[in-house]
């Protein structure tokens, strides 16, 4: 029983860390730049399809497809940001919602047209499959791999934001774009690069997540709530908030579906409404 609980908890953490890596880019655009981007899942889907196409049509090994997924999603993000999104930073939330729903619909239709509506397969290399036995608990190797990758990425992201020149430019631009521009920071460029980085991470997460989240054209819509939730609950300003929120959500969702399947997905929505009532500004609320 205990082993069972630990196993479910572990699955929840792995699931949560995946949510985090996809949603961290959204934490910047939504939480810091106040841009309601319902289409963030599209970047994850781009990454996922890049992985699948490279694996099934070109025979590239799984691990080698991941950097390509990152780059492809980052480029898509950069192009969209430069051509369309940047015009909407000052628009009303309603316009942003409508616009990004439009993008989601178009991407769903486009993905269905190109790849069909079925679930895409993923071929994990043999060393990532199976289970390992740790202290009497069976843990999925792939889940362990996920947690490790996300932990490394999170640390790298932390260093990037806190220790580099680019990181301090991002923080300055977000805190006060006018003053930052006055100090000679090219705010538009910083936002574009940040957006591309966030999209790239989402793409990477989409590729990593095919085995856990699945991949079909409705992906952006199916997981939209989860990504929004990570940001709304986690608050913004640090990467710690979304990380904690993602892990909490992951654990609750997986254990809810495992232990009380009768009410299943209900747990996560109830938790969300509850958390939003108790912490209207998120767990690690940012001053407004």
């Amino acid at each position: 029983m205990i082993a069972n609980v630990i196993g479910v908890l572990f699955d929840g953490v792995a699931y949560g860390s995946l949510l985090f890596i996809i949603a961290v880019g959204l934490a910047v655009t939504l939480g810091l730049m106040n841009f309601v981007n319902l289409a963030h899942g599209v970047f994850a889907m781009v990454g996922g399809y890049v992985c699948v196409v490279l694996m099934t049509r070109a025979g590239v090994p799984f691990l080698a497809t991941l950097p390509v997924a990152f780059v492809a999603a980052a480029i898509v993000g950069l192009v969209l940001e430069r051509t369309l999104y940047q015009h909407l930073y000052r628009a009303s939330p309603l316009d942003q919602v409508l616009f990004t729903i439009g993008v989601v619909y178009m991407s769903i239709a486009g993905a269905t047209y190109v790849f069909g509506s079925s679930q895409q397969p993923v071929f994990l290399p043999s060393y990532l499959r199976g289970q390992v036995h740790v202290l009497g608990v069976d843990l999925g190797v792939y889940r362990l791999f996920l947690v490790a990758v996300v932990a490394l990425l999170t640390y790298a992201l932390h260093l990037l934001l806190e220790r580099t020149r680019f990181g301090s430019q991002v923080r300055a631009s977000v805190d006060n774009p006018v003053a930052a521009a006055g100090l000679g920071i090219n705010v538009n460029r910083v936002f574009a690069l940040t957006f591309a980085l966030g999209s790239g991470l989402a793409g990477l997460g989409g590729g990593l997540g095919i085995d856990v989240l699945g991949l079909d054209p409705t992906f952006p819509l199916k997981y939209m709530v989860y990504f929004l939730l990570v940001v709304a609950v986690g608050g913004s300003g640090t990467i710690k908030g979304p990380l904690v929120a993602a892990v909490i959500l992951g654990v609750f969702d997986v254990s809810g579906k495992y232990f009380v399947p009768q009410i299943g997905g209900f747990v996560i929505y109830a938790l969300m409404v509850l958390l939003l009532i108790v912490f209207p500004a998120g767990l690690y609320g940012r001053r407004t």
Binding site: L30, P93, V225, L228, I263, G265, F266, A270, V273, P280
Partner: peptide, 28 residues
């Protein structure tokens, strides 16, 4: 009561959450 107290983003999330909750309730 939940909708009125928040800002735009909270409103979006709360209405979205209530909608999904009711869907899930009807489903189960």
């Amino acid at each position: 009561f939940l909708v009125v107290r928040g800002g735009d983003l909270t409103r979006l999330m709360v209405t979205l959450g209530i909608g999904l909750m009711l869907w899930e309730a009807a489903n189960k």
